Amino acid sequence: MPELAHGHTVAAYVSVGSEPGTLALLDALRARGVRVLLPALLPDNDLDWGEYTGPGSLVQVAHDGRMTLSEPSGARLGPHAVTDADVVLLPGLAVDARGMRLGRGGGSYDRVLARLERAGARPLLVVLLYDTEVVARVPAEAHDRPVHAVVTPSGVRRFPAA
C-alpha cells in the first residue's frame, strides 16, 4: 500500500496465535525509515504506545492469565501517541463488506478509534486478515467505526464509505 510506504508513523501490533504475521512488516517499515508504534495493554484494556526499534525492543508481557503479548520494552508514550500515526494497523477476527471490523471483544481498539476521532486525527485504518475472514456481515454497534481497507494474502480491498 502506498500509504504504508510513504507514512512517517505507523501504529501497528505484534501478531499473536493464528493472526497473519506482522514482524517482517514491522522490520520492513523500520528499514524504510518509518516510525513504528506498538501497543502496550493497560489494566483497563486501554492501550499505551511505545516505539518499535527492532526485535530486541520487544518484551513478553503476561496479562492476568488472559494472554501473553509482545510489547515494546522502551518508554511509554501515552495513549494519545496513536494520534500521530498516518496509518493504524488493527487486529481483527473478521471484516465485512462495509468495512466493519470484528475484534476480540476487549474494546481496546474501539477506544483507539474513539480517541482518534476526538482528536480529529484521520489516519488510514487497515485490518490484516486472511481471505476467509472477509465476510458478508459482522455484528456492529452504534460506537463501531468502519476501517478504510483490509489486506489479505490475495490483495488489498478498500472501503470507500469509511
Rank of each mutant, 00 (worst) to 15 (best):
G7A: 14
G50F: 05
R32Q: 15
P43H: 12
A81D: 01
R122C: 13
L42A: 13
R66S: 14
G17F: 13
L26V: 05
R122G: 12
S108D: 10
V95D: 02
A62N: 13
P91L: 06
R157S: 01
L90Y: 05
L77Y: 04
T83A: 10
V61N: 09
V135R: 07
A85L: 04
E117N: 13
G78N: 05
Q60Y: 14
D64H: 12
R98N: 15
T83C: 13
L77N: 08
A28E: 00
H8M: 09
L116E: 01
H148Y: 03
H8E: 15
L25V: 10
G21S: 15
V151D: 01
D96R: 08
E133Q: 14
P160D: 12
G155W: 00
V151L: 08
V36R: 06
D84F: 02
V135G: 04
R111S: 07
T132A: 15
G33H: 06
L125Q: 03
D86T: 02
M1C: 00
P55W: 05
L116T: 01
P91E: 05
L77R: 09
D131T: 03
P55L: 12
Q60H: 15
R145I: 06
L129I: 01
P123N: 07
G65A: 13
L129D: 03
V36H: 09
E19R: 07
R66Y: 10
A31S: 14
V34Q: 07
A85D: 05
V61A: 09
N45E: 14
Y52W: 10
V16P: 06
D144C: 10
L47Q: 03
A12Y: 01
A31H: 13
Q60F: 12
E117F: 12
A81T: 02
G21I: 11
R66Q: 14
V151M: 04
G103T: 08
A24F: 03
H6E: 05
